[in-house]
Design a protein around this nucleic acid. Structure first.
Lengths: 204, 204
DNA sequence: ACCATTACTGACACGATGTCAACAGTTGCG
DNA sequence: CGCAACTGTTGACATCGTGTCAGTAATGGT
């Protein structure tokens, strides 16, 4: 007898390992909620052991933040379509809502996960709120400009922006973060109508 | 020497114990988020030991459901002001929003906690969604009646109801579930304007 | 005074997290 | 080629919160 047991440990570059873990997490979230995402389950979907996880990420919340990473930026690019209102402001608003909805449509599960995680972890919460807060701030400023230009009737810009921005986030994660997703067109339609009527009193 | 160590265990009626635990949890939530609510911390604020908790509640999620309990009903009573639209429908909507906002104002921290817990526990999530779903359903029906009566222009009632109801929940928990709370009047104002404009195209 | 009932708890098993010292591929250098 | 030095990787451990259960201590009825 013999056959020395061959240990056979695979080995990758750090970047490859990170990417492998992120991919596993992304896959996981595509059909299970964030609350079920454990380090164990994610690493079981890679060729690595559980402790390796902590080499690349501090904890599962930071993993999520890495996963979402650029989406925040993408969202803001979309919002600028409206905020930098070169064109007709109403057309701009419409285009911005379209863009934002598209981002949520594409990254629905990840954004749902961030939203869920923000009630669990203080750091994620802070980042998530900060993102929405930027939106609120920018929207409020824009509303105030429109009021000053007498294209809107006067009202409390800050609170209105808060309500509408939170609505977007909630409704969009709801519509696209769970299965089956709501048809994109009817979601966009609905948001357009509410925003434009609420702000300008105009139907699309 | 002697002095037999006197064990001294206090004793209450089951109802008193339950109430004591609920009160402790309520107090806890008044200045700390749900994610920090552990069985340990709650029971430390009572004269009971941690295991006793499980005599009265299955887990911390069920505790929360008991704590909120009747609030769901209260909300629905408020909503009926609008849904059973005896009076002027616009006045009815206004009154309903007033009532709903008042409930969130009073029970802000508890409702925030439920909302948070719903991302953690499947059972809480189901109950929470069911509550909002009832609202959506009722609102959608009402909208359809108004459209049929030609008091509103036609649009997708179901999706509009979804967006507006989720907005209410999110915005109201945000406004009243964290400190310092937003002034009630400006919150109600904002919601009124958005709802009435979105549905009727009318400013308050 | 006694016992049946019931409120209560110490001690345990479990599951998930996060850490660390040791191990094993890989790479470069003589 | 052989041998360090480096670094990716992991087994084993400590910790924390949860949920359970057998056993203990008050209580009320007789």
């Amino acid at each position: 007898m013999s056959a020395a047991p061959v240990p056979q440990r695979r080995r990758r570059s750090p970047d490859a390992a990170r990417a492998e873990i992120l991919a596993a997490a992304h896959l996981f979230l595509s059909d299970r909620p964030f609350r079920e995402l454990t380090v164990d389950e994610v690493m079981a979907r890679t060729g690595l052991s559980r402790p390796s996880f902590y080499v690349y990420f501090r904890d599962r919340h930071q993993l999520l933040l890495s996963l979402v990473g650029e989406i925040g930026g993408e969202l803001f690019v979309m919002a600028e379509r409206w905020l930098k209102g070169g064109e007709d402001p109403i057309e701009g608003a419409r285009a911005a809502l379209h863009g934002i909805a598209a981002v949520y449509f594409e990254h629905g599960t990840a954004l749902k996960a961030i939203s869920d995680a923000s009630t669990t972890d203080p750091e994620v919460e802070a980042i998530y709120r900060a993102l929405l807060e930027r939106f609120v701030e920018a929207t409020a400023e824009h509303i105030e400009e429109e009021i000053a230009a007498e294209r809107m009737l006067p009202f409390d810009a800050r609170e209105t922006a808060r309500a509408l921005v939170w609505m977007n986030d909630r409704y969009l994660t709801e519509a696209f973060g769970t299965l089956p997703p709501t048809p994109l067109a009817s979601v966009v339609d609905t948001l357009e109508r509410i925003w434009l009527r609420a702000l300008y009193g105009v139907s699309p």
